[in-house]
Design a binder for these strands. Structure first.
Lengths: 207, 207
DNA sequence: GTCTATAGGGCGATAGAC
DNA sequence: GTCTATCGCCCTATAGAC
């Protein structure tokens, strides 16, 4: 957005700038008005002042228009995990990374709420949302392997970390309070640890 | 399959019976031969001796043809969790349910391996696979709520339980050994508990 | 930018099963 | 007759090839 405004002040190009951003805004508006399934790509491009063909230049498919902007989260989280205090265990580094990134995410809350509403109403979009979270999981698992976690254990820990993150996000979105997102993460992780502590693994039945 | 054979012995209808199953078999064969993206619905229905239009009666879309048959897993797992020993904590019941169902799943290994190969090769199918796992997570979370777990904590525990289940499945598929799937579940859960134990939650930085 | 293949679905026709 | 599974032809929209 900021980049776009600056570009407009510097020069007035022949075609309107910020095509991608206008597409995203048009799509969000239309989805909120009529629901995802009832909106065609043609309607989106029309409202944005572009042709049907231009849509494909910016987004791989219709679903992607809602998730653009979240491509960086996997890399950002992976970086935070990699750069966490070297003395921490893999899971400790994971939690520290989550908390760090959560602090930077706080200002994106309003937009996230709108997107949340649209995505939640469409099975097709919820499916794509899971893919986006899976990309985060994969990136985090790679980072944990760099810190010495074994292959499949890194994947397991990454999945658990992302689950904690999602839980914290949900609770924070439902009732934001002074604790903030980082506090919610710590809370969810502590709850999980307590739950795991209730189980005596040796007592589980075996085949 | 069994139902189909019996039906054929009872009567010989004008059109071949077991259309759904033939479609699933034809699809799996074609996907293995040419790859998911290079197979059209028309080719599948042709091999199954049907028309393209009939495909829609059985499957909501092309992806679904590979995942049909897994619709019952959510209900089966949820039932196992609900019926676990009443003295167990929510997470204890979750693990007990996973172990119980894992024992019954062992005989489906060969088919699962083929499906695994096809799904793993296509991003589109991996996306749908995540949706199927999400259905399991939702059902398990409901069961945990019935056992008294709070709303969002039930969701968190369910996600973690499914992550343990997936890890165990992956390891078991990669190298099946005498421990069996239930043993792998216990192993993954114990690993996770150990990892969580390494973290001092009070030491995590707060905003 | 234009064009085509394909997915997905609406509707009615049809042909056996009952 | 009714019921049910299938087909055939229609259309729209997506996605990708040219």
């Amino acid at each position: 957005m900021t980049q776009c405004v600056i570009a407009m002040m510097v020069a007035m190009p022949r075609w309107d700038p910020c095509a991608e951003e206008r597409l995203r805004e048009a799509a969000l508006e239309l989805f909120l008005e009529h629901g995802y399934e009832n909106v065609t790509v043609a309607q989106i491009t029309e409202r944005a002042g572009l042709t049907r063909r231009s849509f494909s230049r910016y987004f791989a498919d219709k679903r992607d228009v809602l998730f653009a902007g979240s491509e960086r989260l996997p890399a950002v989280l992976a970086r935070a995990v990699r750069h966490a205090d070297g003395a921490l265990s893999p899971f400790g580094a994971l939690l520290a990374g989550l908390v760090e990134v959560a602090g930077e995410l706080a200002d994106q809350a309003p937009l996230a709420a709108q997107r949340r509403a649209v995505v939640g109403a469409s099975p097709e979009l919820r499916e794509r949302g899971r893919t986006k979270f899976a990309a985060v999981t994969d990136a985090v698992a790679d980072a944990l392997r760099d810190r010495g976690a074994a292959g499949s254990e890194a994947t397991l820990l990454a999945q658990v970390g992302v689950a904690i993150f999602r839980t914290a996000l949900d609770r924070w979105a439902d009732q934001p309070d002074e604790a903030g997102l980082p506090g919610r993460i710590r809370e969810a992780a502590a709850e999980l640890a307590a739950s795991l502590g209730t189980v005596d693994f040796a007592a589980l039945p075996l085949p």
